[in-house]
Design a protein around this nucleic acid. Structure first.
Lengths: 212, 212
DNA sequence: CACATACTTTAACGCTGTATAAGTTTCACG
DNA sequence: CGTGAAACTTATACAGCGTTAAAGTATGTG
């Protein structure tokens, strides 16, 4: 029997979607209070005012819930990154972007953990959820592009540098600013480097990669 | 009754230590085969030829086992880092150190996860286990010191840069070399930067840190 | 009104880390 | 040599987890 996608079908779909949203909303509430790993389907069901198996009517598994959360968080993060103004001052904009990135991670530990750490065992974002994250990275590429930095390896170096700063900050000095205050210096280091090696193909030095 | 620490006490202690070592050894075997998070006390006991509660005669909890593993891994890692030769060529030595660090992480995913990712919920290394990790970081500081780089913020920038490279490599291109091949470029960028800002206090730029 | 569908619930399975209480081995000492 | 205490091991069990099966209940459609 073929499912008719008439008016009543939309009804159902809408109801279903809002039910899913309610569950994910409850999940965020719990996760922001107790941490990402502490999420339990029983707690989640209680918070959402339903019973445990009902959750399975809307999500195939706990992992699927994490995936929905990942998608929301990635979208939210992308919006935030897109909202950074273009002052024209490349250096200032990159610094601002990095600060916002860092502060987003510091203020939303659960979202940070979900998006950038792989702390949930056996969880990998689905392609469509991951697409949002890729889009957010695209913002960074655009921003570097405007700075005249278009080489892929420079983008990779940029992501390594910024995520490294944030990771160290969160892992080794949470609540402090030991790495946060290095942001401007790091941006300057990066910009200077890019300016001096803009298109000069850096004699890719060969090295035996067989070890241990 | 006061415990006598005579010859028989040493006996016991030695037996106890070797029993602990056997358990940790079995844990490594399982973890290297099935992944760090897959470790189960029942599997561990079977692998070690004992029963589950016996494990509790030697370790207070599963976390304590992870802690013992952390200590071993940190020591092992420190030794590896200490074994990097000093050729006198600062640049070459830093590059070599970074490659070895990266390759250690890539070839020992379980050890990497345990030491540098915080992927085990509710696990934090004990002070004595963590001391080994701090010592390993000390090697890096010594190495930078020899390069004439002694300012703490440069050391922090270094750790952020190198761990960022490795993290990106493992997270986004496992098995490849997309970030690995940036090591030399990153080291050059870093060295150039340090040379140009050696002791010049970088006008610590103030910035309002209240946001979101 | 009757039916099919979507939704919800009660109950349970197999797994986990952990605890308790009852054996069993082992070694120092009278 | 034998005894007693300590260390060790075991069987059994508990509460919690993610997940599932089957039975019940509402709901909009013909």
């Amino acid at each position: 029997m073929v499912k008719v996608q008439g008016a009543q079908g939309d009804w159902r779909a809408a109801r279903r979607r809002s039910a899913r949203d309610a569950i994910v909303g409850a999940a965020w509430a719990l996760v922001e209070r107790d941490g990402l790993a502490a999420l339990t389907l029983r707690d989640l069901a209680r918070e959402a005012g339903i019973t445990t198996p009902t959750v399975y009517a809307y999500f195939d598994s706990k992992t699927a819930i994490y995936d929905a959360m990942f998608g929301q968080a990635a979208e939210h993060f992308g919006d935030l990154m897109a909202a950074i103004p273009d002052s024209g001052d490349v250096r200032a904009d990159l610094i601002e972007a990095t600060y916002r990135f860092a502060e987003y991670c510091l203020h939303n530990p659960a979202r940070y953990q979900l998006l950038f750490q792989r702390t949930i065992p056996d969880f990998e974002p689905s392609p469509q959820s991951y697409a949002h994250a890729v889009a957010a990275l695209g913002r960074a590429r655009d921003r570097l592009d405007k700075a005249g930095i278009s080489e892929p390896r420079h983008l990779d170096l940029w992501t390594a540098l910024t995520t490294g700063l944030v990771d160290q900050q969160i892992s080794n000095d949470p609540g402090g600013d030991r790495w946060l205050r290095l942001v401007e210096e790091a941006v300057d280091m990066f910009l200077t480097h890019c300016a001096s090696t803009s298109t000069a193909a850096v004699e890719a030095p060969k090295r035996k990669r067989a070890r241990q």
